[in-house]
Computed example of a mutant assay.
Amino acid sequence: MSVRPNIAFVTCADMPKPDSDAELLMAACGEPVDLVAWDADVDWSAYRCVLLRSPWDYHTRLPEFLAWARRVDRCSRLLNPLPVIEWNSHKRYLFELAARGVDIVPTRFIERHSAQLAQALAEFGSGEVVVKPAVSIGAFGAFRGAADSAACADHLRALAADGDVLLQPFVPGIADGEVSLIFFGGRCSHAVRKVPQAGDYRCQDIWGGVAHAHAPAADEFALAEAALAAAPAPCAYARVDMLRLDGRPVLIELELIEPSLFFDTAPGSERALADIVLAAAAS
């Protein structure tokens, strides 16, 4: 008679790409694990540990997703913990980090239905900017262009009609790659440099970006640790994304919900997260 797994890895029903990390992590756990879409009709109380792995559609249904996370938190051990998920689900957390002295990419926050769109763009003159939703993943909804172009104004208007928006200067250093430091249980496991394909600025693999192993510099470690120290609770896993601006690293995003963890660039690194999951399921 088979025993039902007491660990669930959370995914989504319509995957935009394969999750290359899940198989390695499931094998490292050494016991059966259920891979379940977050909106599936299941009894989440049957699992002692529920690990968010690839719910890559959560940003399209955020209120529903957060309501689901709150239900699961009442009946199981949720990783990362609920306060972290709630805090990290909207990029307003970047401004909290900046207020605590963490260097971030210069960012202008624009509220939904703002009447100040033209004024916000005018601050950048004819410079290149990146416009992106404040709730998003994987550069979906992002636009790069001249701040004084009609295309940029149209994109900003469309995004602001739907939700909050971030407006940032385009940082040319992204062509050299975006550095990501991956942490498990508060300790840095490994790092990668994600390089966009020629002519693009998006470094995610879904847009053609390629990740290479990276040896982090001391100032990159310091930035990552400062950012993680501001999270509302300890994290089982974290990815800290950054690039260089004027010679220093600045934070792009702190990924605490569903980041790719690049286990394939650091063979065996999945065991550290597996140990955390197994301990959570046993407690």
Rank of each mutant, 00 (worst) to 15 (best):
E178H: 06
S283K: 09
V135R: 05
T11N: 11
K132C: 04
S54K: 03
I257P: 00
R61E: 13
I257L: 04
R144S: 08
G199Y: 06
L273F: 00
A147G: 09
I206E: 14
R239E: 01
W207N: 14
A175P: 04
V192N: 02
S114H: 11
V210A: 15
E96K: 00
P106L: 03
P16Y: 11
L166I: 11
P106R: 05
Y47M: 02
V36H: 03
A69M: 13
A213E: 09
A115H: 14
Y93H: 03
D205R: 15
G186C: 00
I276V: 08
V33T: 02
D219W: 04
K194W: 06
I257W: 00
P234L: 01
D14T: 14
D246I: 10
D219M: 05
R187I: 09
A46W: 06
V240W: 00
F170T: 08
G209L: 08
A227Y: 02
R53Q: 12
L167S: 03
S180L: 03
Q119S: 15
H190V: 10
L117F: 13
A13Q: 14
S189W: 02
V129N: 02
L278Q: 09
H90F: 04
A120M: 11
Y237F: 14
A226R: 05
D148I: 03
E128Y: 15
A161Y: 10
G208A: 08
V102D: 00
A233N: 02
V165I: 10
W38V: 07
L245F: 07
H59Y: 12
C29R: 01
L223K: 00
V250M: 07
P32T: 10
M1H: 10
G127V: 10
G177P: 04
L25F: 09
A279C: 14
R144C: 12
R193S: 08
M242T: 02
S89L: 04
A191G: 06
Q119K: 15
F262Y: 12
S136W: 05
I85T: 06
V42W: 01
I206W: 13
A134Y: 08
D200T: 09
D246P: 09
L278E: 02
L254V: 01
A198K: 11
A158W: 13
E253V: 01
